[in-house]
Design a protein around this nucleic acid. Structure first.
Lengths: 201, 201
DNA sequence: CTTTGACCAAAATATTAAAATAGTCAGAAA
DNA sequence: TTTCTGACTATTTTAATATTTTGGTCAAAG
């Protein structure tokens, strides 16, 4: 890896630490520079603006998530087992990078064209990964459907939808965060179990 | 019906018109009073405060929704057919009262204890209704599960989750509102089809 | 029992000033 | 040449203040 790329990685790592602890819009470029004991213009030498650094962070986190997901895959497991494992991986990342939540970032960060495009690509990649999972289940005769891409999108959107529902319900702080994470996982797994069975018929 | 109750109904109807057209927090008590050609203190004679009027509106809307849902029910239909019909009813109300969206109402209206309690009761009622639907399917041998209440909650949360996902995706105004509503219905039905099949095994 | 005009306190909104932050640049260090 | 920095803006956030709007009350009238 080129020296410049190594430096870029270091900056991204530093940014991740700040972002995941204080949130994106509570972190200034100076904070990140100070953490790394460099000047702010140095950051701007490697990233044209804050937004591109954020995108770099997002892509790095997703990259790690995808790697972990692939590591956890076992072609011999049945669909339900694979989905349950994936849910655990997914939620461990969700918990670890909870403070990243783009939606509460800088004004309209979520709707910025560049960020949106990056997220779309990553979402597509995730969907591809799950489509492969479903295809694999199909090879083992566990599924009688045709459009695996479509199926993967529907499944993932359902999981994310449940996550959002639990977050909303838990925003009243009645449940102590930990309880909420368990709640999310339980519901996602309950749905996945029915979902997996529904594909068999 | 007592005269006072009739008047309460009229006020609620008037409030619904304003709320569903301009949203809750863009509607003042004076707006509602003027529409009905009465004075503001008259409103306060029937409702102690704005919040209780809002709760009255919400309960009225849900009451109508439940009635429509029951009307659309047919004990002879199979589970998938019933669920598809319910989705259409549900979304027609969602569309009609879109501007009501509590979440964007007055600050923390969603988290107000009174409103929250009322919503919890209504959500419980809806879950009961769907639990009955599942029980009915069970009688016809379409389901091999035991906890219908739990099942109904999971199903409804999944549907709502999908709705939220589509709303978020559509907030960028790329799709012209109508497209979004169709998108919601399509995804909810696709999930319901798999869900219903998953319960059979 | 119902309704109302006149009134008030609290909350939302608009205005302005002050502080913080993203981003630039000429030039130094490596 | 490539990488870095101190010193400097332009823009955005935040804080403070003034102004309007709106929820809610009350004494009195129909």
């Amino acid at each position: 890896m080129a020296e410049a790329d190594k430096k870029r990685e270091q900056i991204i790592e530093g940014a991740i630490k700040r972002f995941s602890h204080f949130g994106i819009h509570k972190t200034t470029m100076n904070d990140i520079a100070d953490d790394l004991s460099v000047s702010k213009p140095s950051l701007y030498y490697y990233f044209p603006d804050k937004k591109s650094l954020i995108v770099g962070v997002i892509e790095k986190v997703f990259k790690d998530y995808f790697a972990m997901l692939r590591t956890n895959l076992n072609d011999n497991d049945n669909l339900e087992t694979v989905l349950f494992g994936s849910i655990d991986v997914r939620n461990s990342f969700f918990e670890k990078y909870f403070m990243l939540k783009i939606s509460e970032g800088v004004p309209d960060l979520m709707w910025d064209d560049d960020v949106k495009e990056s997220l779309d690509v990553l979402k597509k990649t995730e969907a591809d990964l799950f489509a492969d999972i479903f295809k694999n289940a199909q090879l083992r005769g566990e599924i009688h459907e045709n459009d695996m891409q479509h199926l993967a999108s529907l499944y993932l959107e359902s999981l994310m939808g449940l996550t959002n529902m639990c977050i909303m319900a838990g925003h009243k702080k009645i449940m102590p965060e930990k309880k909420m994470l368990k709640d999310v996982a339980d519901k996602q797994k309950a749905l996945s179990a029915i979902f997996a069975r529904g594909l068999r018929c």
